[in-house]
């Protein structure tokens, strides 16, 4: 099982994401340079957090035009498993792989905080190692994390089980619609979330709850193989 972690200029969490992926037994991880196109040998893609291209113009707006993202879009449409974390979530929305958009936090400030994240749908490739109702302790850190989609879209997503993660215990840190913390596309093979599971893989630094997402991905990839 090999994870590929995309690195844009301005990506910050790529090393942490690689280390998190490698904590999954039997998994390896490698960086994917934004200017390259090859996804050869990659079983799942992670787009990590940071400030790709300085987040100029609009968060995630420039990264979607990189050569690597063209390959990622193809990979996703072929059913490949793609996880976008924080800035990666923003990039996936900009690339049209995920519905909705991320808006500035209601407080208009950067928020760094450990939050409870409730699993709403445990049937996705990203949550299959969890159970619905589990509350994972995972940190958030962002300025632009307020998930928004029109009501009609939200209802449709709800019906298709695309709302996968919610902020628990009234702990919505950014004003997201319906406390949404993470969503998938309709096919279920692409997920974006604002919390940082790669920063919840070591009890010494806070929590190991984020590891289940990477384990889920590995499980799903193994099942498909």
């Amino acid at each position: 099982m090999r994870f590929g972690v995309v690195q844009f200029p301005g990506t910050c969490d790529e090393t942490d994401a690689v280390l998190a992926c490698e904590r999954v037994p039997g998994a390896e991880a490698q960086l994917l340079w934004h200017g390259d196109r090859s996804l050869e040998g990659i079983d799942a893609v992670v787009i990590p957090g940071g400030f790709s291209y300085g987040d100029y113009l609009r968060v995630g707006a420039i990264a979607r035009f990189s050569p690597m993202m063209e390959s990622v879009v193809r990979f996703a449409s072929d059913g490949g498993v793609v996880l976008g974390i924080c800035n990666g979530f923003q990039v996936l929305c900009e690339a049209g792989l995920l519905p909705g958009a991320l808006l500035p936090n209601v407080g208009l400030r950067f928020v760094c905080r450990q939050v409870g994240v409730e699993v709403v749908n445990a049937g996705t490739p990203f949550t299959c190692a969890t159970s619905a109702g589990d509350v994972l302790s995972i940190p958030v850190k962002h300025t632009t994390g307020r998930y928004y989609a029109p009501d009609v879209e939200l209802e449709r997503m709800q019906a298709h089980g695309q709302i996968v993660l919610r902020y628990a215990h009234d702990g919505n840190p950014n004003g997201s619609s319906n406390d949404i913390a993470g969503v998938t596309n309709e096919a279920g093979n692409v997920m974006g979330l604002m919390p940082h599971p790669e920063h919840a893989v070591d009890s010494l630094t806070g929590s190991v709850d984020g590891l289940t997402l990477f384990r889920s991905m590995a499980t799903r990839v193994a099942a498909r193989a």
Binding site: T15, P139, K141, D202
Partner: peptide, 26 residues
């Protein structure tokens, strides 16, 4: 103040602000 700063990135922070008198990096 501190929650406006990322004290997490690079995965070394064993003691974050408010948890101990000094910050600790593994």
């Amino acid at each position: 103040l501190f929650q406006q700063y990322d004290w997490i990135v690079q995965s070394r922070t064993v003691r974050r602000p408010g948890q101990a008198d000094a910050a600790v990096l593994q």
